[in-house]
């Protein structure tokens, strides 16, 4: 199937999965420090050649869809648009560190474990930091925001890498 179809499918599956499953994962009293936001995998997996305006529009649509579920209208959208904007830059920064070819599919199998985990973690940190900052709307609690960002980014990166190995095989076309 064509990549467009896979991307649409991912969008449709990730939003309810995030809202109905991932949001309900609890770690007892420390739940607020480990929020998984697996849904940003959609932005991470957009083909490299997607036009920037389209990436931004899709990120906005993705964020708003989740916002409607969780009653946080605008917050997820804002964070998503931010990482959609930052994605090409993050890719460029990583390119200078590694031997790196522009390939169309940013998956763990195509790009390698090390590249992918730094790519995912950087964007997670950016997304989560922005989200928690906007959610809190004050700068007085910055240490709590940073702790939340770190804990949640580790958890989200884990979920993303896990999803990569579980659902995206080396051979299948579903990238």
């Amino acid at each position: 199937m064509r990549p467009v179809v896979w991307n649409i499918l991912r969008f449709i599956i990730l939003i309810p999965f995030q809202a109905l499953v991932i949001h309900k994962i609890e770690f007892g009293d420390y739940s607020s420090y480990f929020n998984g936001f697996l849904y940003i995998l959609f932005i991470l997996m957009l083909p490299y050649e997607t036009p920037k305006w389209l990436t931004l529009t899709l990120a906005f649509a993705l964020g708003i869809s989740l916002d409607i579920f969780s009653g946080t209208i605008g917050m997820h959208a804002s964070a998503c648009v931010l990482i959609a904007f930052a994605r090409p830059r993050v890719m460029k920064i990583l390119a200078s560190n590694d031997e790196y070819e522009f390939r169309n599919k940013p998956t763990i199998h195509v790009m390698g474990f090390r590249w992918y985990i730094s790519y995912a973690f950087l964007l997670c940190v950016l997304h989560h930091f922005w989200f928690f900052l906007v959610e809190d709307f004050r700068f007085t609690e910055i240490h709590i925001i940073l702790l939340k960002t770190l804990g949640s980014a580790v958890f989200t990166t884990f979920l993303i890498v896990l999803t990569q190995y579980l659902f995206f095989s080396r051979k299948k076309e579903n990238g």
Binding site: W53, A77, S78, V134
Partner: peptide, 20 residues
């Protein structure tokens, strides 16, 4: 143009956030 579009979308998000 992309940066401007980014700013427009962010502004829209914040209108929603503050409105909410």
């Amino acid at each position: 143009s992309n940066f401007l579009y980014f700013l427009v979308l962010q502004a829209l998000c914040f209108i929603f956030i503050i409105g909410n």
